[in-house]
Every structure is written in C-alpha cells, then in structure tokens.
C-alpha cells in the first residue's frame, strides 16, 4: 500500500484514534487485572461477557429506551451476572490448578458466544452510541465527538474505581482479600464474597468497554475477540498485577499499533496483532513483570 504524504494533522488524528482504541483496551485490561489480582486467574470469557451485556443494551434500546437509561440497567445486570458466574462456576474449583479454572473460563466463553448466536443471530448490528460521530476542531485537529466521549467515559470510570479502591472500606477489603486471603478472614473480611465482588466489577468494566466500542465497530458475537487479545496484551504490558499499568499499557498499545498500522507499510492491518505481541514478548524478556508489575520474590 503506497503511503499518502505525511501531515502533522493526520498524525495527530492517528494519535487521537490510537488513544480511543487504547481507552477501550484499558477498560477491558483493567477488568482482567482486577480478576487476576484477586484470584490469580485470567478470565478468557471477559470479552464474551462484555459482548453479551452489550447485546442486552442493544435489546433494551431496540425496545425504545435511550442509551443513558439503558446504560445503568445494563451495568446492574452485568454486575449481577459477574457475581453469579463467580459463585456458580469459579467458586467450586477455587483450589483447583490454574489450568482447570482457565479451561472453565474458556468453556464459558464458548457457551456465551453460542448463546449470543442463538439469541441474537450472527449478523452484524448497528449499535447507536451516545455520542455523535461528527468531528470538532481541537487545536486545528479534527477529532470526532465519539472518540472524545469514549476517552472521557473511560477516564471517569478508572478514576471512580481508583477512588473506590483507595478510600472505601469495601475497596480496601477487596485489595486485602487479593493480597492475603488468610489474614483477611482473620480480620473478618468475607473473602469469598470479595472475589465475587471482583468478578462483578470486572463484568461492569467489560460492559462499559463493550457499549463504548460497539458504535465504532459493529455489534456481533465475535466483536470483542480481537479486542480481548489486545486487552490481554495491554494487561501484560502494564504488569498483570497493576491496575495503573493496565490503563497505561492500554493507551500505549492503542497508540503504538495505530501508528504502526498506518505508517509502516509492511505491517498494515494484517500484521498489527502479531507485531504487537512480538513487542510485548520482547518487553517481557527484558522486564518479566511488565512495565509496572513487580516480580514477586517468593519464599520456598
């Protein structure tokens, strides 16, 4: 593909698009990190869970609800769904090897994916988002309102979450249960419920990411699959243990691959994902804990 002439305006637009992509990855990556921190499990169903809730939003809006009315309802459903999944599917195998739990989440991903095809069909659907797609001029660079909206919502969500974890008793208990379940029990924390709560929060984050990205791409059962991979990559990039890392990793990844895809002809759109993974692999070899993660020193 021959490259069009380079202009700074376009470069800035690409960066903006990358940040928007990255904000979505960051949201999903954060969901992955929250579950990982508390249960040491990677939830491979995270993408499917997000798409499922987005479909629910679509159905509600199809019945005439406006986006901002459907939004909180969907978040509540997502939360309840996440908690239920943890209680029913993950709890019984809490002490099983990691692989068992990974496989259960893979099974859940397949199950949800099939259910979506059955309930809503496999066709692409247009999802009307809350933001207009018209562009406005930001310091000489045309950027769409939608992109700005997505980034603002993501930042707001991350900020809310940070406040919750830092300043509320429940947030503190969640963190405590993640780092030291035994001592948390002795302090009176119901650790089992904290894990379920973690899944609930992760499901909410996923739902928001789904509802933000659906207007940009199209809504179909496989919508989140590639995005989930980028989110994994973002989480690994930032360090699976670090929520802040997930956010930074997401944005960094979004911008990097957008620029690489646009300006490096050889990579184009087909090799974006392999190249992103290669970069992360190299990073992991240099810093095994990711950018922000700490490599735990274990006692044996």
């Amino acid at each position: 593909m021959p490259l069009a002439a380079f202009t700074w305006t376009e470069f800035a637009q690409q960066i903006a698009a990358g940040v928007r992509e990255g904000a979505i990855y960051a949201g999903l990556a954060l969901a992955i990190v929250i579950i990982y921190r508390s249960t040491r499990v990677i939830n491979f169903a995270q993408g499917e869970m997000a798409t499922f809730t987005t479909f629910i939003a679509w159905s509600l809006m199809n019945r005439g609800l406006s986006f901002w009315v459907a939004f909180p309802i969907v978040l509540a459903i997502a939360f309840a769904g996440g908690v239920t999944i943890e209680r029913v599917l993950i709890r019984p195998v809490e002490n099983a090897p990691v692989l068992t739990i990974v496989i259960i989440t893979l099974g859940l991903a397949l199950l949800l994916n099939g259910l979506m095809s059955i309930i809503w069909g496999g066709a692409n659907r247009q999802f009307r988002g809350p933001f207009s797609t018209r562009t406005i001029d930001v310091g000489g660079v045309p950027i769409s309102v939608q992109d700005i909206g997505i980034v603002v919502v993501s930042i707001a969500l991350v900020a809310l979450l940070a406040l919750f974890f830092r300043f509320t008793k429940l947030g503190l208990a969640l963190r405590a249960a993640a780092v030291n379940p035994d001592s948390s029990r002795l302090a009176g924390v119901r650790v089992g419920w904290m894990l379920a709560l973690g899944w609930g929060i992760a499901a909410v984050l996923g739902a928001v990411a789904g509802m933000m990205i659906a207007p940009v791409v199209f809504l179909d059962p496989n919508m989140m699959q590639t995005i989930l991979l980028y989110a994994f990559a973002a989480a690994v990039l930032g360090g699976l243990d670090s929520p802040a890392g997930a956010v930074v990793g997401g944005i960094l990844l979004g911008v990097t691959i957008t620029l690489l895809g646009r300006y490096v002809g050889f990579i184009g759109s087909t090799l974006k994902l392999p190249v992103a993974l290669l970069l992360i692999l190299i990073l992991l070899l240099i810093r095994p804990g990711g950018l922000f993660g700490r490599v735990a020193v274990r006692r044996v």
């Binding site: 099974g107 397949l110 199950l111 994916n113 099939g114 095809s117 059955i118």
Partner: peptide, 12 residues
C-alpha cells in the same frame, strides 16, 4: 451457535 453452547457446557 448450538455447537459452541454444547461444547462450552460440556467443558464446564
């Protein structure tokens, strides 16, 4: 979709 549902359910 039915095959995914069955596969997933059996797996779980």
């Amino acid at each position: 979709g039915i095959s995914s549902v069955v596969f997933g359910a059996v797996l779980i």
